[in-house]
């Protein structure tokens, strides 16, 4: 559509509260923060910093959410829970997270069965992505076919420059939130703005290449190199450091496993919740049954760890034509046992 340059004063105006929109700033220092007051300085600082530890999926697939009420209410008819949500404007979404969102869409929205609340939340969310001017030490999007800037899938994309913000308006919904450019003092972008943006992108790409120089694997697209199954001894070495806390799956922007949990609300009134779950936990696959039966297909942690990594790098390409890892590096930061997924893939891919 169009690209604009916004001074700090114009950014302040862009962030002014407007009815129907609830902006959330994603920042490395503060996680996800609802912007009740426009704060251009904080916004520009966050947009020029590394990615937030808060991942995007919580906005579409909350950690726990009511999905059904049933029982005596309404003459015994069960109903889906309608979640009221305002248009959430997510500011500072990274390219890796847009790829993760694409993955979640493939799983939760595009198949014959769709998750109803996920779809509803997608419809009421505006994605404002930003170039990664800085990145975390664990960032590794370029190892898995990504780039530190978005090329599509956003409503608006912004680039933090040293004198303000470059804003690429890409969708009608994005245009609606952006409003009349003149009203906020936005100027049409000049070729020199784009040139500075491109230079920044190049610099971040170079930094990513440098910090990941030790990793020679390239997992790209629908046919990455095969990894061995859980019988390989390397899995045991990595599993020895895993404490089954589930941090990696919680913080991963593509991990989407959940279970449905029923609870009693009152006399003959019941509720069903959808809760995040983690494939690394021993209880994850556990079935009912007697002591003489094999109650889980993956009793060993090494098998569960292997299943998680294989799902991302081998099974997802077969299921959805895309990798299940976007190289955001959050699991590397979160792991109590210092398991580095780059190391895992590097060592197992041979």
């Amino acid at each position: 559509m169009a690209t604009y340059h916004l001074s700090e004063a114009a950014v302040e105006k862009l962030l002014r509260p407007r009815e129907g929109f609830a902006p959330v700033l994603l920042s490395a220092s503060a996680g996800a923060v609802w912007l009740d007051e426009p704060d251009a300085k904080a916004c520009l600082a966050a947009l020029s910093g590394p990615r937030s530890p808060a991942n995007l999926k919580g906005f579409f697939l909350p950690a726990a959410e009511s999905v059904a009420r049933y029982g005596a209410e309404g003459g015994g008819a069960a109903t889906a829970v309608e979640t009221a949500v305002a248009t959430t404007v997510l500011l500072g979404v990274r390219a890796c997270e847009l790829r993760a969102k694409g993955y979640l869409d493939a799983v939760l929205a595009d198949g014959p069965f769709a998750d109803p609340t996920y779809r509803r939340r997608c419809r009421s969310t505006l994605l404002v992505s930003c170039d990664c001017v800085a990145c975390a030490d664990s960032c590794c999007c370029t190892l898995v076919g990504g780039q530190p800037f978005a090329t599509g899938g956003y409503d608006l994309n912004v680039t933090a420059l040293d004198d303000g913000l470059l804003v690429d308006v890409a969708s009608e919904a994005g245009e609606k939130w952006f409003g009349e450019p003149k009203a906020i003092g936005a100027e049409p972008a000049l070729p020199e703005h784009a040139a500075r943006r491109d230079k920044q992108r190049e610099a971040t790409g170079k930094r990513l290449a440098e910090q990941n120089a030790a990793f020679t694997f390239r997992a790209v697209g629908a046919k990455p190199a095969p990894l061995p199954d859980d019988a390989d001894a390397a899995w045991q070495r990595f599993a020895a450091d895993c404490v089954e806390c589930g941090a990696c799956t919680n913080i991963c922007p593509t991990c989407h496993c959940f279970y449905l949990y029923d609870q009693v609300l009152g006399a003959e009134r019941f509720e069903r919740l959808r809760n995040w779950d983690s494939c690394l936990l021993g209880s994850y696959h556990r079935m009912a049954g007697g002591a003489h039966m094999k109650l889980t297909p993956r009793p060993q942690l090494r098998s569960r760890l292997a299943n998680r990594v294989l799902h991302k790098f081998t099974y997802s390409p077969q299921q959805y034509g895309r990798l299940g890892c976007v190289g955001c590096g959050r699991c590397i930061d979160a792991c109590l046992g210092a398991i580095d997924i780059r190391q895992v893939v590097q060592e197992l891919e041979r």
């Binding site: 496993c257 959940f258 449905l260 294989l310 081998t314 099974y315 997802s316 077969q318």
Partner: peptide, 18 residues
């Protein structure tokens, strides 16, 4: 017949390979 929750290929737990 493994542990299944959603029944629709969303919740993730009943995989064998892909």
């Amino acid at each position: 017949n493994r542990r299944m929750s959603c029944g629709m290929g969303l919740c993730g737990r009943c995989n064998i390979g892909p």
